[in-house]
Write a protein that binds this DNA or RNA. Structure first.
Lengths: 335, 335
DNA sequence: TCAAAAATTGATAGCGCTGTCATTCGAATT
DNA sequence: AATTCGAATGACAGCGCTATCAATTTTTGA
């Protein structure tokens, strides 16, 4: 094995100098730096990163905990994280938790055991046990895309409530007075926030809230189908359905079609996320656009504030949304 | 810091015994194991994984090189890899290369520098320089989803040519005699294989090959739109278009609609991959189903053969395809 | 019961590197 | 030429753990 000592011998300098020449080139003289670089090249030296990591206690990697890799929204967020992390010389370790809390905990232990420098958590809960909470000082863990508003960790989140309210307002503005909703898991802060926005919009326009056209989903394609089936099965169909993510909206449109209803002529459908695909649906899906790539960038910034021990100006960052109005929504037909 | 020595002292045993009690519980007596476990719990001992990794030269992580994280097909493959890797106690490190060869090389250096135990490469090229090729013995690098048929690394790939041929045959069987194609990058083995299958089907039915209705794409949504535009711009439109992935098919369907052509009444469209979304398109997309999750599992198996130095029975694994026939294709209209 | 074999434990080196501190060198100043 | 001072380098400990081998204890079998 060619190690640092081989290089030192070849270059006729001490191991410390070799180390410095590689890690902090500005503190060694031009001449020795050249000498060392040549020697390293000659003997084909590759520093053993594991030794470096062990010694310097910096892994240069961060862990992303993601409940579901194959969800395209998360895939985009991860892309954003990746892009923000690479220029800093960090690597991404991916932890697919499948929503399982134990897996999440196991993976988060990587932080405690020095295997990673920080964590970006894409689910709603603090990934570690209470006992590992690191006392007064915040551990380098950042929540992204969900809204955990206690102070266990900094967050980066969308203006969720406002976004849902804006979409609901838009639908109401089209003349829809009965708007069905397919939500996320009811205990999720995301669902709670978006429902609050929805209700606020109804109240503003003095529309009555109907529990029976609100159904629960799990963000999957089939949840959209089942959701529509449930809504249709209990009486007069609403003229619009607001799905709390795009995949459920895809499912919803499919089921509506299956049941002989036209989108948007009979029922308007709106989604949330604005996946790249949504524009390509037929009809193209109206949705709430989330700045998915920015999420990653901002979360990484937050995380490095923690890792480098700087004071955080703002613990909870809110990112703006946009409405992407397309052809899956139209004016309510006046029957 | 509570390290192994703290535990040893507390338990009244040697550090070696503590190490053994943690790593190979079966070689220490029940009594001491209990004693050590208690002591470890009492002092809140978390082994420093970095020291372990450094010392034992096993990182228990594997690197996945992926050209584009937000491609849902890759996302699925990665999911499959993840699932196969977790039970072995390994973690996944994700390298988003964006198709950039330098990034790929940099990341692949993690193998050389002992930062990872193996690599699964989702692009078509060998990720390291020739000089790092490890001489006679194969380095633990496996290619997945692409077809590199030299012996630089084992591969897991689809029966590509057969799949494309089957789809082309199916379209011909519906009465389509002029079938446009939107391919991948022309130099890619994937494209070459699929084109070979397409041509074979034509020849079998004595149909003429028309270069002008074959256009190049890059697997993106917009490539599908542009591809259709290009095909339509040069004369009589074909009655079917075969896209070498589903995303391009989505783009193609959109552009066809935009140009006033109906799918499938005027033009049938077929894709490749069978993404979960494809079934939800309107019309639902006919496609070649790839066993995306199996890819991951098989690739991981191959990789561990290499890591554990076993002899490989089969260097190049072929996985089977299926045709998913849906409503974006139908019999050719007889004009 | 006692020697031999097996199971368990302890002592210690050292993985490859970086941090620390001491030393040396070279240029600048008097 | 002598002194000073900062820059550059060297020497070396030791990070926390595991591998190795030696020492000890327990078990086994005659």
């Amino acid at each position: 094995m060619t190690n640092i000592r081989t290089v030192a011998k070849k270059a006729g300098v001490s191991v410390a100098t070799v180390s410095r020449a590689m890690q902090k080139p500005d503190v060694v003289s031009e001449k020795t730096r050249k000498k060392v670089q040549e020697a390293a090249r000659d003997v084909g030296y590759k520093p053993n990163m594991m030794a470096q990591v062990f010694r310097s206690k910096k892994t240069h990697s961060i862990l992303v905990l993601v409940p579901d890799m194959s969800n395209p929204f998360f895939a985009q967020v991860i892309s954003g994280i990746q892009k923000a992390v690479r220029p800093r010389g960090y690597n991404l370790v991916l932890g697919n938790t499948l929503g399982n809390q134990q897996t999440e905990r196991d993976l988060a232990q990587l932080l405690i055991t020095n295997q990673t420098d920080g964590i970006i958590q894409l689910s709603a809960r603090y990934p570690l046990d209470e006992q590992d909470k690191g006392g007064h000082r915040l551990l380098p863990i950042v929540n992204c895309c969900e809204c955990v508003n206690d102070d266990s960790m900094p967050t980066v989140q969308l203006q969720n409530e406002e976004a849902a309210k804006a979409m609901a307002n838009y639908l109401v503005g089209l003349g829809h007075s009965r708007i069905g909703v397919i939500t996320g898991p009811p205990e999720s802060p995301l669902t709670i926030g978006r429902m609050a926005g929805y209700k606020a919009a109804l109240e503003e326009h003095r529309l009555t809230f109907e529990q029976q056209i609100i159904v629960e989903g799990d963000y999957s394609l089939v949840a959209g189908e089942k959701g529509v089936a449930a809504i249709l099965s209990c009486g007069v169909a609403p003229t619009a359905i607001f799905c709390f993510n795009d995949e459920m909206a895809f499912g919803a449109m499919r089921e509506l079609k299956q049941q002989g209803l036209r989108v948007p002529a009979d029922v308007s459908v709106a989604g949330f996320d604005d996946l790249p695909f949504s524009k390509y649906m037929n009809p193209a899906l109206t949705s709430v656009r989330q700045p998915s790539l920015d999420f990653g960038a901002v979360a990484v910034n937050q995380l490095f504030e923690l890792i480098e021990g700087r004071v955080m100006r703002q613990r909870h960052q809110l990112l703006p949304f946009e409405l992407a109005i397309r052809s899956s929504t139209c004016e309510a037909s006046n029957l």
